[in-house]
Write a protein that binds this DNA or RNA. Sequence first.
DNA 1: GGCGGTACTGTACTTTGGTGCAATGGTGCA
DNA 2: TGCACCATTGCACCAAAGTACAGTACCGCC
Lengths: 203, 203
Amino acid sequence: MQNWFIDRHPVALPAWLEALPEARVLARAQAGTAVGAGILWFRLRAGEALATVLPAAGPAADQHFIVLSDEPDEEGVLQALAAGAAGCCNSYAAPEVLRQVALVVGNGGLWVGQSLLRRVMGSSARILERQPPAARADDWSALLSEREVQVARLVAGASSNKEIARQLDISERTVKAHLTSVFEKLGLRDRLQLSLRINGLTR
Amino acid sequence: MQNWFIDRHPVALPAWLEALPEARVLARAQAGTAVGAGILWFRLRAGEALATVLPAAGPAADQHFIVLSDEPDEEGVLQALAAGAAGCCNSYAAPEVLRQVALVVGNGGLWVGQSLLRRVMGSSARILERQPPAARADDWSALLSEREVQVARLVAGASSNKEIARQLDISERTVKAHLTSVFEKLGLRDRLQLSLRINGLTR
DNA sequence: GGCGGTACTGTACTTTGGTGCAATGGTGCA
DNA sequence: TGCACCATTGCACCAAAGTACAGTACCGCC
């Protein structure tokens, strides 16, 4: 996994290269064109706005963003994550920490650091409370048996009957039986309608 | 890193053990005493309160918590993280996903899954709404011809090939031809995966 | 003029999805 | 002890989805 450090000038802090010697270092001006797949570490210096250091396009499918903040705070972390970053950590973090961040993010995880986590979650929870209760419309699952719900969920994720049978360790015929029952109970025609219903795209 | 699956009864879903054959499986009653260092996967069944499955004490220094939720939703994820969990993923996730989650969490990261992340962030910050819709939402259509896009959109709405043929006034065979081309261009297997992609539920 | 992409269609075929009928066994309830 | 519901499975069957191979036709481009 290639790492790219992107700062105002193409200069890396010593700890960065100690952590990831193979990384390349770019100036922001080059970042639009010269960067390929991998992990992109954007340094956010004190007082800078996030929008000025992140590219407008957002990450490509084969890229992850990490924000290296000189002054990390909870609001900045939320903004970074909202802008598509997979993590946010201190610019002056130790090399071992940076390596760990790279490992986690490279595998699709999030990294916000332990000390920031509590504060971030605290403010997220507060924001959530002000939002409408989200109306968990789970009336579909209420109509189904436990096993039917399991099968339905797997269908909603685009699994085939054969895959579902293997996952639940039952025969394909039984999967079909459950599905027939699900269709009948919910008044649906096939697995695609079921998927839309479960994923909340139809009433 | 030892993994422990903790459910109402000491029974694991097949995918769990396929992902982590070395894991041990415990009932909740045993979880207080029998669990050592490593990653603790707590299954949260539909309708259960988080507090009933997580131990009151919280994780020890050498432990990480993961919540395996039968019905993952944004509020539950936030609650789980606030309660000390390092991640929250679907109980029915594929083995490869579970392995990745274990890797990330074992290295101190967070895991909430990509689709959940979007929703959580959507609740946490409005910033997201200004950003992605054009970027990611339309990249699938960019790869397709005009006719293929028409067919794909109808498929995403759960129309059958016959219905699509009637709507577009072409033969069912032509619908299939377009779809075969769409699957090939987007690297998808069938119409259900296509529907999820178009409806923005998969990357 | 050839080449590649698109649109369209046919025949034939395999695979997957879904139903009907039948059966076994378990659970919970009146 | 029945009855209803659930989970499971087999066999047979039909329909829908999807693929392989082939063919016609239009368009823009070098």
